[in-house]
Amino acid sequence: MADPRSADIKDQPGFRSIAIICLCVLYAPILILMIFSLNTGSLVTRWEGIGLGWYGSALLNQEFHNAAKNTLIISVTATIISTIAATLAAIGMTRVKPWRGLSAAFMVINLPLMVPEIITAVATLSFFALIAGTLGLNFGIGNLILAHTVFCIPFAYMPIRARLEDMDLTLEAAAADLYATPWHAFRRITLPLLVPGILSGGALAFIVSFDDFTITQLVAGPGQTTLPLYIWNQIRRPMTPEINAISTILLLVSILFVSISFLIARRRAK
């Protein structure tokens, strides 16, 4: 099986065992969390039997409902706004003549990826405190939407830009050659071909917003508890498998969106 002449890393001694250990460390805790969400007992550490009881109680839990509602409002709004902004930014940076400050703009857009999130969180918090203090402005849940939109933009931006850069520019030239004005060429050629990139970017932005904790924790006001915050609050109390059930629901939603993003990206690669 292991051919000593092979240069394939998969055939090197130890590769297999290291890979298995890594996968176990990564996924075993998640698997255990999911398994205990099916526990009928009220402890997250002792297995008593299988049942969907905790899912029932989670779905009937009013606090969970409120947190889910907040999360959806924030994530969906932030996804839509950030995807639109990212699309416009990507077009502005790939389909126009190079302009002064192009690389600076690129860095500004991608900065949230590189700045430690806690810094962004503290800065955002001070910013909102400042405008609340000096201008008396507080947008309520809008504060969170705004904060989420900003850090979602680079995530939405990357797949959209990649798609635009992959696109054959002669297609747009051909459209112009066939009497399409710049607007028509965009509407009929560029945009339809960009849709997979936009969907993929949007899915990524959604998932990033959906499970954000650090920034949300600092910026959220009373009554603005999102799902990650709700889970964090729960684990400070005596834990029941209900939290496992809620976490599993969250995880499934995340997996769904990551899969969508992945499938769209794969279809475009074909």
């Binding site: 002669t170 112009a176 066939l178 060429a185 339809p192």
Partner: peptide, 19 residues
Amino acid sequence: PPFKRPVNTVFQSYALFPH
């Protein structure tokens, strides 16, 4: 601009619209 010229082009790569 190209869209105002009664001239059409056959491109080396054909540039057919894939969608």
